[in-house]
């Protein structure tokens, strides 16, 4: 057996089977991330609540899902739900597992973001008569979101690779498909290199997307703004000072 087969490498790189595996990975990441974010937001808000009845279940949730391996959670969902007569596809089980697990981590990230929103602005919003709900949606969430983009980016990046854990419940994503093909011709190195390349491609695409999102969210916080030039600003300050 030769050490490295370029032919094998490029064959697998061009393989629609592997390519679709990568698409499935992207799909699982996107769906779990979005649902996990919404669930995480809910958990973060309830965990911050003054009322024990709300905060305690949220604390329990985070404690439980961060304290047990994702692998175990997936197997329990996959093997446990049918016993309750709930029959779901492997994909559904995978996404449920990933979502529940990710939500626990995202909740902590979101909570950190909410804690970092200046309390003075919250007080100002209250003084203007905004309801707590309006303050959350109009002031706290938008500002917290900007603050947590970097850690959220970490999460997306991590999740892209963590999806491979779902192979234990036979989810045919990128990693599982690579392993299936290994059985075929035993080109482990070539196959796993192709998989690594795909993961790199996906994380790089995400890096790019994250930069765009960050750029957008940072807009209000850049000192140079809009079409108003520095000269014009100086001029207006000067005229005001003359008033």
């Amino acid at each position: 057996m030769q050490i490295w087969s370029w032919h094998g490498f490029f064959t697998y790189l061009g393989s629609p089977y592997i390519f679709c595996g990568a698409l499935i990975t992207v799909y699982m990441t996107a769906v779990s991330m979005m649902m996990g974010f919404l669930l995480g937001l809910l958990i973060a808000v309830t965990k911050r609540s003054q009322r024990r009845l709300l905060s305690w279940p949220a604390r329990f949730y985070v404690w439980f899902f961060r304290g047990t391996p994702l692998l175990v959670q997936l197997v329990v969902i996959y093997a446990g739900l049918p016993k309750l007569d709930i029959r779901l596809s492997v994909m559904a089980c995978s996404i449920i597992g990933l979502t529940l697990n990710e939500a626990a981590y995202l909740a902590e990230i979101i909570r950190a973001g909410l804690n970092a929103v200046p309390t003075g602005q919250i007080a100002a919003a209250r003084a203007l008569g905004l309801s707590e709900r309006q303050i959350a949606w109009r002031i706290a969430f938008p500002q917290a979101f900007r603050l947590i983009i970097p850690p959220l980016g970490n999460s997306v990046n991590g999740l892209l690779k963590t999806t491979s854990v779902t192979s234990v419940i036979s989810m045919e994503e990128l990693m599982q498909r690579s392993q299936i093909l290994v059985q075929d011709q035993f080109m482990v190195l070539e196959l796993f290199s192709v998989a690594a390349l795909y993961y790199l491609l996906m994380t790089t695409a995400w890096d790019f997307l994250q930069r765009r999102i960050e750029h957008y969210a940072e807009r209000p916080y850049r000192r140079q703004q809009k079409s108003v030039s520095v000269e014009a600003t100086k001029l207006s300050v000067a005229t005001q000072d003359a008033r």
């Binding site: 200046p118 919003a125 002031i139 900007r146």
Partner: peptide
């Protein structure tokens, strides 16, 4: 300290 909403 003014407390303008910094994202608006």
């Amino acid at each position: 300290s003014f407390e303008l909403f910094s994202h608006l």
